[in-house]
Design a protein around this nucleic acid. Structure first.
Lengths: 175, 175
DNA sequence: TGACATAAGTTGAAGCATCAAGTAATGTGG
DNA sequence: CCACATTACTTGATGCTTCAACTTATGTCA
């Protein structure tokens, strides 16, 4: 086995399921967020990552890296979030070419009210289906694949502080 | 553990990685297909599923189920594929309200020339990173999650073909 | 049979993502 | 210190996806 480009039967089976999950899971999560908060998974993640930063600001490119997106995509999305009043953009005092995005009070409020429902959906769709071994399998496998997708590790989930959950009331939102 | 909507640390870690993979993996696969064949992952899958059918035809709704999509999405995509000459649509003789999509010879040729490069990319990004245990972990975990996403099992990867028996394989993933 | 519900598909508009191009600020080599 | 490359970001066009109608055909049941 493991010759040529083709997949053997086990691999084929694993791949088809993975592909199905990659289609259905984002759709399901987007549906919940859209229904309950009028947000995309991506725009929610953008707000959530800003909310975990000490001063609720990040340069656009740093934010892009934490949400695994291109700068272009982020720029469009932040423009929309800005129109909603959840984010503002200001030129950085430190360097003339960086713009920092800042989560407004309204934006923080939005994250706080959206987070529990989203986390519950993640739990329902993923973790309720897995026992402890399943969770660690998932962590393992995704870590291995991430290593392939992003060998440099520049974009990798969760660059921000992990050890200390901010306030008791504001647990890391992303789920 | 496992109380309330919130995720514990292990779950949080697993989820963030999963989210990153869900973002980056489809993007990477789309990029390869777009570059080498001018196809989307979704349009490729559509052609591929048709190619696995004995007479290279399927009713639109059956096709939609096998590629995990809405009928609307499929309709738009098939319209484009039809314009490229890879698919045709004809009213079914059996029922006046079904349309069957048929893969043309050119379409079959397109699938055949596209498949190896795509399979190689899937191998490179996923299976080269996993040993045999990893592959079976992946199969297990995705099966468990699929069970949540689509309890009815109506849409499930791979209704056609391959491994025969209806698998009794939807227990909590262990592995 | 006739009335109504449901199923199968299509379509157009609106939103979001991607791509290519453009601007402006900042390093960097000669 | 001046050209040139690079970095950080924005913008507009294009294309794909979704959503809400809409059409047409088929079941259902009185």
């Amino acid at each position: 086995m493991h010759e040529g480009p083709w997949l053997d039967d086990d691999e084929q089976r694993a791949w088809r399921r993975t592909a199905a999950v990659m289609t259905l899971l984002p759709a399901a999560l987007d549906a919940q967020l859209q229904r309950d908060a009028g947000l995309t998974q991506f725009s929610y993640l953008t707000l959530a990552m800003l909310s975990e930063t000490p001063d609720r600001t990040l340069p656009m490119s740093a934010l892009a890296a934490t949400v695994n997106s291109s700068l272009s995509r982020l720029s469009h999305v932040v423009a929309r979030l800005e129109q909603q009043g959840w984010v503002t953009r200001e030129p950085s005092p430190e360097s003339g070419r960086v713009t920092v995005a800042r989560l407004t009070d309204a934006g923080l409020e939005k994250v706080r009210e959206t987070a529990p429902g989203h986390a519950a959906e993640v739990r329902r769709l993923i973790f309720d289906a897995l026992d402890d071994d399943g969770v660690s399998s998932l962590a393992c496998v995704t870590a291995a694949i991430l290593g392939r997708l992003d060998p440099a590790g520049g974009m990798r989930a969760n660059p921000l502080s992990r050890e200390a959950p901010p306030e008791p009331d504001a647990r890391p939102a992303t789920g």
